[in-house]
Design a protein around this nucleic acid. Structure first.
Length: 285
DNA sequence: CCGCAGCCTCCCCT
DNA sequence: AAGGGGAGGCTGC
């Protein structure tokens, strides 16, 4: 596979090796992998991109048969003029736990992934570790997804997934998640505008709409909306976040929904970004 | 409204 | 060496 020449996005993106790695592989997306040369190769929707940091500057290239505009990379990676202001607006001044996490992962972003594939990946995520989720996603893409370039496949559309028998998903070791995917695919195939409508709704409405889907509870809905719907006020609470909120914020015995409500209020309109900083920090130890 | 077992499979542990 | 317990949740009771 031949690639375009490397192009620079500049030194001012704020990405460091650490925050780029954490952004691409820290549990937001399951479709990136580090290459032998230390760069990152990944997909979102029909897009393929390779990223690397050279002398402090973020660089990108694509396969020649599937090129992208610079602005599409900037959009996906959420590299925009608002980032610094958003970080600054988080309550780090009065929150030393958050301040420490932000310092350790300076430059960490919330990706702008397609809602459809983000929902799919998180539907597989329950009681799975990141490597296991990646494995399921890649197997599914290879089996049922469009081949974008030789050897690299997209996550299949919900329309395509609706044609797949639950039994064939079980064969890929989905376990009990197979019936969630099959049932959600059936519903979305019958309502082609469902996800598009969710994207245009305010966060609270979109969340209650998503939770109607089989296998989608508050955590999966929040992840889909934060990482795939650019709803930055979503505050997904998984076991890691529950642990940090219990250990560091004294919220011992709080329910997951209570923690989520607290998070949205305490961290504000960009609570999801705060969540990602905390998540990275607690996972790193 | 809350709490809890069960669900698939994998992995780690004894 | 085989078997128990738990893992980045959801559902139904």
């Amino acid at each position: 596979m031949t690639f375009t020449p490397w192009r620079s996005l500049g030194k001012k993106t704020g990405f460091t090796e650490s925050s780029l790695a954490e952004t691409l592989e820290g549990g937001q997306s399951f479709l990136w992998a580090k290459t032998a040369s230390g760069s990152w190769l990944g997909t979102w929707g029909d897009n393929i991109t390779e990223l690397r940091i050279m002398s402090g500057s973020l660089e990108w290239r694509t396969p020649k048969q599937r090129t992208l505009e610079r602005k599409e990379i900037l959009r996906y990676l959420a590299i925009d003029s608002e980032y610094d202001a958003i970080c600054n607006s988080l309550p780090w001044r009065s929150d030393p736990v958050l301040a420490d996490a932000m310092k350790r992962f300076r430059g960490l972003r919330i990706l702008r992934q397609p809602l459809s594939e983000t929902l799919f990946c998180f539907l597989l995520s329950s009681v799975k570790s990141i490597p296991q989720i990646k494995d399921l996603c890649l197997k599914t893409a290879r089996e049922f997804g469009e081949e974008l370039v030789p050897g690299i496949h997209a996550i299949p559309t919900w329309e395509r997934l609706a044609e797949v028998a639950e039994q064939d998903l079980r064969a890929l070791k989905y376990g009990y998640r197979a019936k969630y995917v099959a049932a959600t695919a059936a519903r979305l195939a019958g309502e082609p505008d469902f996800l598009e409508n969710c994207e245009t709704m305010p966060y609270v409405e979109a969340r209650s709409k998503l939770v109607e889907l089989p296998g989608v509870g508050s955590k999966v809905a929040d992840c889909a909306l934060l990482f795939g719907g650019a709803k930055l006020e979503a505050f997904p609470v998984d076991t890691w976040i529950a642990k940090v909120m219990s250990d560091r914020y004294g919220m011992v015995g709080w329910s997951l929904d209570q923690i989520a409500s607290f998070g949205r209020i305490h961290f504000g309109p960009y609570a999801g970004l705060a969540q990602q900083f905390l998540f990275s920090a607690v996972r790193a130890g």
